[in-house]
Design a protein around this nucleic acid. Structure first.
Lengths: 339, 339
DNA sequence: TTGAAAGCGGTACCAC
DNA sequence: GTGGTACCGCTTTCAA
């Protein structure tokens, strides 16, 4: 690797000062078209590309952001990441991807590390730390966009998926199908969005006059394995439960599997509704009824908001609310063939 | 956001020079245990965390790497990314995730941008640029780990999935099931791994004495849509084709759908084998026979190798060869029920 | 063992 | 318009 071409080299080649080179490449400050052209010529000739690190040190802006997710392996997140990155690239930003593995401690570490990086802003998706830690972190940190966690703080923008409504759509759909004994497979106990979905579930059930015994709501890891274990437990302990609303599609898939293993085919033996509507949901058999969230859009909006915050550091932005939609598929429909 | 705590502040607080602080936090250079302790005390008290940017400028090492993939939304890549990141985090490295969208131009841009970032090294997974551009880039760049592209170059490490053998496993399996008219849905024409799989396919077919007309091998986008379009075309034009080997699982899924639309159930009307064995493959119906690649392992190995290259810049490392394995599922088996 | 000074590669501010 | 100079926050070199 040859020595890096620096601004100094360009300055020398063009016969101007470093300062003038800086002006030329940044298109700012007064500079005569002639010198400008001469400088850009030299830039091209030397294939000069300014060091982002040096620039970052000087400007305190790295054009870099951090995207924090629990697990990129969860199909909910790649699409979000695409949305984020597509917008980021358009604005010449790079994004650090960080997994927290659903662990609050990991998350805290990741956040600290990003703060030291330093990145210009952070997108926190799927936060698992507690409210105090979140508030404390937001305190010391400026542009932060948080998904599905209520965190009143200047310098923090919220993206709020209508989880409560999603839960209501699910419950209403199941109730309309005649189900009265509906259990819920919640997400991690540390997940705010899970809390919101559980809350929405409770309210919707109550509104329908349906009871929800405490042990019909089970937390679990938001994975196929997690859903499998929780469903097995729930359906074994409370066989009267005839339908399940789950934290996400992955847990729904695990639940479907468990249900089948217990001799209860889906949907006849047990109806199931997931959440997120990942692509997978439409492709499995039976296909999965789910509450759709527009993931790519979510990612885009989050990044757009972050850019806006970077642009106007002192503005206060209202939360972005993202609606959901019920997508009905086989896992809640009596299928025509069989069953 | 308060002013950043700098090394200067710590030095002042501990009553030493910046230099001494640097020694203490980096655990290098001679320093008395007493001062060391005093400094670390101050570090803790002030919650000082060194700026990676400043450090990067001084050391020319940013502890940052770039991971370039065609599309993180393709389920092949999130697992790889996890493997990479888990190793990276352990070594205190951060990773930039970049999507190239299967476009050679985008890829070139992304690579250039990463070179200017600058990152300490690059993991190039799913490269779509041509050999000349790849060689040219490798020339100016040091530690580079490339997946599935033969690129002899000091400073480049190769990860080679045994694509040829994978193709052979697929062909043999289909042939053993009695198929003689086997078509192939290749990947993008710019994809080296697709070229390798096609080559392997041709050889395996030839070895069996099976013919492979040119138009039984169709390139396509490595997505469900791409597989769907290609399969539709192939099966319509050449109805005698009774089995399909596809570039990846996504195209296989699309192909299965197309086949069904043409009134040919899978596997009875058309057998299908994918590649990668993403989780999805086991969950769809009919479940998909596929050539498994250990994605997480791949990511881990790539990052481990990159770290090794960073450690010994002048060493020459041999390619890492990754084996594959055929996983037989319903899409190539006559199912007991129905069909 | 410790500190002073120079430099990494840019930008900001202020003269000219 | 253009150049000089200080400075961003850290590490490296060299002297003390």
């Amino acid at each position: 690797m040859k020595r890096r071409v620096t601004i100094e080299d360009v300055a020398r080649a063009a016969g101007v000062s470093r300062q003038t080179v800086s002006r030329a490449i940044n298109n700012k400050g007064e500079i005569s078209p002639a010198t400008r052209e001469r400088v850009l010529e030299a830039v091209r000739a030397l294939d000069y590309r300014p060091s982002r690190v040096a620039r970052g040190l000087a400007t305190r802006r790295t054009r870099t952001i951090g995207l924090v997710v629990p697990d990129i392996t969860n199909p909910f997140f790649p699409e979000i990441a695409r949305g984020v990155q597509d917008v980021a690239r358009g604005a010449d930003y790079s994004v650090f991807l960080c997994n927290t593995d659903e662990s609050p401690d990991e998350e805290l570490q990741v956040l600290r590390s990003l703060a030291a990086q330093p990145v210009d802003g952070i997108l926190l998706f799927g936060s698992r730390i507690n409210d105090d830690d979140a508030a404390a972190f937001a305190d010391g940190y400026r542009p932060l966009v948080v998904l599905n966690r209520v965190l009143e703080h200047p310098g923090v923008s919220l993206i709020l998926v209508d989880n409560q409504r999603g839960a209501k759509l699910a419950v209403d759909h199941l109730a309309n199908k005649g189900h009265t004994a509906i259990g819920m497979l919640a997400g991690p106990v540390t997940s705010p969005s899970s809390a919101q979905r559980v809350e929405g579930f409770r309210q919707a059930m109550a509104a329908r006059g349906l009871s929800t015994p405490e042990d019909w709501i089970l937390p679990g890891h938001p994975t196929i394995e997690g859903g499998h274990a929780a469903a097995r437990h729930l359906l074994t302990g409370h066989p009267q439960v005839s339908a399940l609303f789950t934290y996400n599609d992955l847990s729904a898939l695990g639940a479907a599997q468990a249900s089948l293993e217990l001799g209860r085919r889906v949907p006849a033996g047990c109806a199931i509704i997931g959440f997120d509507d990942v692509r997978l949901a439409a492709m499995v058999s039976p296909s999965l009824t789910s509450v759709r969230v527009n993931k790519y859009y979510l990612g885009q909006q989050a990044m757009i908001r972050l850019l806006a915050m970077l642009d106007e550091p002192d503005a206060i932005f209202p939360p972005i609310r993202v609606d959901v939609e019920l997508v009905v598929r086989e896992s809640t429909q009596k299928s025509e063939i069989g069953d």
